[in-house]
Amino acid sequence: MTPDILILAQEAADSSKLAATIWSGLSLGAIYALLAMGFVIIFKATHVLNFAHGALAALGAFFVASFATIIDVPGRWMPNAPAWLTWGLAVVLALIAAALVGMLLERLFLRPMVGEELFAVAIVTLGIDIVVRNITNDWIGTDIRPLGDPWGTNFFDLGFVRIAHTEIAQFVVSIVLVVGVALFFRSRTGIAMRATAFDQEAARAQGINVGRIFAISWAIGAVLAAVGGIFASTFPRRTGVDQATAFFAFKAFPAIILGGLDSIVGAVIGGFVIGLAEVAAGTYLEQFEFLGTGFGGVVPYIVMLIVLLVRPYGLFGTEEIRRV
């Protein structure tokens, strides 16, 4: 009998399996990174830890399903347009709707909480999560709702690994958004947001409209959540958005903690690390009987705990300076 560890070594040497694992880990990680980035932007600007992020992701994906397939807007008015164009426009509409929902939630429920304890504000978002999730579930209804994306089940075959078109799209979009967010922080509004994050009162004294900054950050956060939700609901990961989609975002928590609550770079790196760790554990450790079922799923949390033991503010988080 070969010891398990030897089998593991042999399997790791199997390059096509390794390539497939890395690829599928990165593609999962890209979704976590998108979700984590949304979290961090909201946290950075408004100091709100948003537990409703998953609900926003599901809602955003459902908006896409609504515009692209259920009510077919704008597709119904442009019957001759190519599929990618009508779908693209539907996504744009859905993202605008998601941004509006984000701003509305901030204005209604979080603006009154400015200056309250961080913990109390975080719990408000737990309440928001329950409300938004249940209303979204009622809209989604009983079926899985396909998003109607133009990529279908097509893939590129590179021999040692197959790459679905959706996964390419997901990577391109993730990179564009990461760069976009980075550039945004260099823009005038972005600098204002950084100032607000640093000290809300001082920023206000400098003439920055802090309320507007809050609204913008929630809009961006909601859009990033929606994009994450879209890719979490497309082939090959899923065939559409359903009532379980909202729970997907919980895995982004280890990612943001790993990177540090207020670091964009950390969120992106954390997302990829967690995605890779989860898939690799699922693929390579499943054979160890004593680990049982679903060990891969808790690996992100274990990684998170270990990192926090060494660095209590994550890899890139700002250490809080405490005074008496």
Binding site: L49, L118, F119, A122, F250, F253, P254, I256, I257, L261, L291, G292, T293, G294, F295, G297, V298, Y301, I302, M304, L305, L308, L309, P312, Y313, G314, E320
Partner: peptide, 28 residues
């Protein structure tokens, strides 16, 4: 000790991880 090292919202998420790890342990 882990929980004492981290503070505030970090603690909230660490304990959230505890629930998921616990579910995994109970399942298995």
């Amino acid at each position: 000790p882990t929980a004492v090292r981290v503070r505030g919202l970090y603690l909230a998420i660490v304990t959230l991880g505890l629930v998921f790890i616990g579910e995994y342990l109970f399942r298995n």
